[in-house]
Computed example of a mutant assay.
Amino acid sequence: MPRATHQGLLRFGDIEIEVAVLDDGQRVITHRGFMIGLGRIRPPKGRQYYRNGANLPGFLTVKNLKPFISDDLVKTAGQINFRTIQGIKAFGYTPNFLRKVCEVFARARAAGVLKATQRTIANRAGIVAKQLELADMMRLLDEAAGYHETRET
Rank of each mutant, 00 (worst) to 15 (best):
R47E: 11
R27N: 00
M35G: 15
K63I: 10
L73C: 09
Q86V: 14
G33L: 07
G53E: 05
V21P: 00
R42M: 06
V28W: 00
R47Q: 05
T76I: 06
N81C: 03
R51H: 06
N96M: 15
G87L: 06
R32Y: 08
I80Y: 04
K63V: 13
G46S: 04
G78Y: 01
G33T: 06
F82M: 08
T94V: 10
K89F: 04
D14P: 07
K45W: 02
E18F: 03
G92P: 03
P43S: 06
K63D: 14
K89T: 15
Q26P: 02
Q26A: 08
P67A: 13
H31P: 04
S70K: 03
Y93D: 12
K63W: 13
D71Q: 14
P43M: 05
K75I: 04
F91R: 06
K45I: 10
P43V: 07
F82T: 08
L65W: 14
R99P: 12
P95L: 13
I29S: 04
T30P: 02
T94K: 09
G37N: 10
V28L: 00
V28S: 00
L38K: 09
K75H: 07
G58A: 09
A77E: 03
L56A: 06
I41N: 09
P57E: 12
N55G: 06
F68H: 06
F82H: 06
V19R: 00
A54E: 11
I85L: 14
Q79V: 09
P95Q: 13
Q86T: 15
A20Q: 01
I85D: 12
Y50D: 13
V21H: 00
G13C: 04
G46A: 07
A77W: 04
E16S: 04
H31T: 13
Q79N: 05
Y50R: 13
F68A: 05
T84W: 00
R83Q: 12
P67G: 01
F68P: 08
G78N: 02
P57S: 11
F59R: 13
D14H: 10
L65G: 05
N52Y: 12
F34N: 14
Q86D: 15
N55F: 10
P57R: 03
D72R: 15
I29W: 04
G37R: 14
R99T: 15
A20T: 05
P95H: 12
P95E: 11
G92Q: 04
L98Q: 07
Y93I: 08
R99Y: 12
I17T: 05
Y50W: 03
I80D: 06
G33A: 11
K45M: 03
F34V: 11
R51S: 07
R99C: 15
T76H: 03
G53T: 09
R42W: 04
N81T: 14
F59E: 15
R27M: 01
D24C: 00
A90Y: 02
Q26K: 08
G87H: 03
F91E: 08
F97Q: 15
F34Q: 11
D24Q: 01
L22Q: 08
A90F: 00
G58W: 09
P44W: 00
K100A: 15
F97A: 14
P57A: 15
I69Y: 05
